[in-house]
């Protein structure tokens, strides 16, 4: 995570925040040069969503504010950081929109579909797994990243807990009511410790009151990247989650644009640099980019 750059900007951020006090929850972007190409006067079929967005020069993106490495709003600042955020910048760039013109809107897991259905946001990039159930109500393009359930443990325990088989009787923390906590309890005999956020789980892990945290590897990597000397993601992936970009259901033009942009980012290196500057900070190697789905289903 780029603490130095953010610290230097904090003072400016404070002033900017004072000016936009009215923005509640989602702050408007402040300046900063994009590392990604910004298309000049991009061409889209007239009347399509990408064309409308490009014309307005603004885009509202639903992201997480509480997941380090993916989508995280550092306290007292007005721009989130993380891999999802970088992906949003890449996509905005292809619409000719600078990062400063992206409106960030916090979403939590439960309100991602409503935000898209009610057009509160234009797209959602928020560790948003592609599932059949969700595709009944929203569109999902991608995946731009594939992950799966893994374990996060303390550095000193990484030889003791190497995978789900070592979890019998071990206190494992995850979010209340999540599938991950059920899997480790039912199938591997772990003792469940439910909290309302992953951050709370990770703090308990660092405090020594639980011995592992489980959820999508990408989320765990974000925490490992925050404290690379203390925490380690271990073990095989024991489920598959494919993160996609949420858009309005049935908008095929938008889907095509998103898929194309994601594929392009795989090729021109911007996906790789996005990963390396965020999740990659935990020290893991940048994986091979996934293969995206076609847009036939809409």
């Amino acid at each position: 995570m780029q603490f130095k750059r953010r610290k230097a900007r904090a003072a400016i951020g404070a002033m900017a925040l004072a000016l936009v006090l009215s923005a509640c929850g989602g702050g408007s972007g402040s300046g900063g040069d994009s590392e990604y190409p910004i298309a000049e006067n991009p061409e889209f079929a007239s009347g399509s969503t990408p064309a409308k967005l490009a014309d307005s020069g603004k885009i509202t993106v639903g992201v997480k504010f509480d997941q380090p490495g993916l989508g995280f709003m550092p306290p007292g600042e007005d721009n989130p950081v993380g891999f999802d955020i970088e992906m949003a910048k890449i996509i905005a760039g292809q619409l000719g929109i600078a990062p400063s013109d992206i409106q960030w809107k916090e979403t939590v897991s439960d309100n991602r579909e409503p935000f898209l259905q009610n057009e509160v946001v234009d797209i959602v990039i928020a560790s948003y797994s592609i599932t059949e159930d969700r595709q009944k109500v929203v569109g999902q393009a991608g995946p731009y990243y594939v992950t799966g359930q893994q374990l996060l443990v303390r550095e000193e325990d990484k030889d003791k807990i190497t995978g789900p088989e070592d979890l019998k009787g071990v206190k494992v923390c995850s979010v209340t009511g999540s599938t991950s906590i059920e899997t480790v309890t039912k199938e591997y005999g772990a003792e469940p410790v439910p909290f309302d956020t992953y951050s709370a789980c990770v703090r308990q892990l660092q405090n020594g009151t639980v011995d592992a945290v489980t959820t999508d590897g990408a989320i765990l990597l974000g925490y490992a990247a925050q404290s690379p000397d203390e925490l380690e993601v271990v073990g095989p992936v024991f489920s598959e989650e494919r993160y996609g970009v949420g858009y309005y259901k049935g908008d095929t033009e938008m889907c095509k644009f998103l898929t194309e942009t994601i594929n392009q980012s795989f090729e021109n290196g911007s996906w790789k640099s996005a990963f390396e500057s965020t999740l990659g900070e935990s020290g893991i190697e940048t994986p091979e980019p996934p293969t995206t789905d076609s847009c036939s289903q809409g």
Binding site: T176, G177, S178, P192, P194, F195
Partner: peptide
């Protein structure tokens, strides 16, 4: 306590809804 690591009655609502 359901929001603070204890599996008690209220927390079971999320489990039941999931399954």
């Amino acid at each position: 306590a359901a929001a603070f690591g204890v599996v008690e009655a209220t927390g079971q609502l999320s489990n039941l809804i999931r399954d």
